[in-house]
Simulated assay, not measured.
Amino acid sequence: MYYGAFSISKNMKLNIQNETSRLRAVILGTAVSNGPEPSIEEAYDPKSVLHIKAGTYPEETDMVKEMEAVAEVFKKYDIKVYRPKVIEDYNQIFSRDIAFVIEDKLIKANILPDREREYEAIQHIVDEIDNDKVIVLPEECHVEGGDVMPWNDYIFIGTYSGEDYSDYITARTNMDAVIAIQELFPHKTVKSFELRKSNTDPKENALHLDCCFQPIGKDKAILHKNGFLVEREYEWLLNYFGKDNVFEITKDEMFNMNSNVFSISEDVIVSEKNFTRLNTWLREQGFTVEEVAYSEIAKQEGLLRCSTLPLIRD
């Protein structure tokens, strides 16, 4: 029997147009078998280093508990939750880093080489997607999903284009990737933002765009001015959303990852329970806020958006 003329139809139809439409399917990372506490040399970001030095690096049991609470919120809203296959003694929390979806395409992120196995652990999910909808960028394109935000007619991308790019382990997305994404989606306006980077000071480091900015609802945003290297780029966002629609966070709030909440819909946001000022403002704006404990995960310079990879929104 000859099957060569037929391709197997895969059953997952991706759809991501923006950050806030009603979520239907998502990959949530896992903290199970997270491995031993890394050495300072093994850490990928200055916030992890700070907690390693202070003896406050998060315990696996606490992080598992935090992530399962998020999974429960997703189940409450009837969202299909996929999880990576567990790799023994390996950090698989931040699924946003390893891939991202724009429209009906999943783009494999070119991440730090040490983290390549994280993508292999979601291969069983990728296998449900048509092959021609899975994009692997050229090797010179460095990109992580935390820097990429589809927003209707726009794609917002955080980047760093300084000549000292290679000196920063915190510089994760380069201009080669920005250009490649523009070529993949020529009908979209790709707008890049230069981010402030530091290998040593977590309060002066925007690891990803979602560490200093995130759109919420239909027309609002959370924003931190100092995360942007170029003031006019920050001003562009402020003007685009309008000052009355923007919640400005402080340096300490950025450090605590206040911009890294996660939208289930235009009306429902999952947020860390200690973000008192933000959560109060969100409720005043009419949002339903699903509060969870996520402060242990936050010690690795990532929060709710970082640990989720949306696949399908309405």
Rank of each mutant, 00 (worst) to 15 (best):
Y3E: 13
F6V: 11
I8K: 14
M12F: 08
R24I: 13
V32F: 09
E41V: 12
A43D: 00
V49M: 09
I52H: 04
D62L: 10
V64Y: 07
V64D: 02
M67S: 03
A71K: 09
A71Y: 08
E72K: 14
K75I: 07
D78Y: 12
Y90M: 03
I98P: 02
E103H: 08
I107P: 01
N110Q: 11
L112H: 09
E118W: 01
Q123V: 12
Q123K: 12
V126I: 15
I129L: 02
N131I: 09
V134K: 05
H142E: 14
G145K: 05
G145F: 02
P150V: 04
F156R: 04
G158A: 00
T159W: 03
S166H: 14
S166I: 11
I169W: 03
T170S: 10
T173D: 00
D176Y: 12
I179E: 15
E183N: 13
L184I: 07
L184W: 02
P186C: 05
H187Y: 12
H187Q: 15
K188A: 02
T189D: 12
S192R: 05
E194I: 15
K197E: 05
T200Q: 06
E204Q: 09
L207W: 04
H208R: 08
H208Y: 10
C211L: 09
C211V: 13
C212A: 06
F213Y: 11
Q214H: 06
Q214I: 00
K218F: 13
L223C: 05
L229Q: 09
R232A: 13
Y234T: 11
E235K: 10
G242R: 09
K243Q: 13
D244A: 10
I249H: 01
D252A: 10
M254N: 03
F255C: 03
M257T: 07
S271C: 14
K273G: 00
T276Q: 13
R283T: 12
A293M: 06
A293S: 08
S295N: 12
E301D: 08
R305N: 14
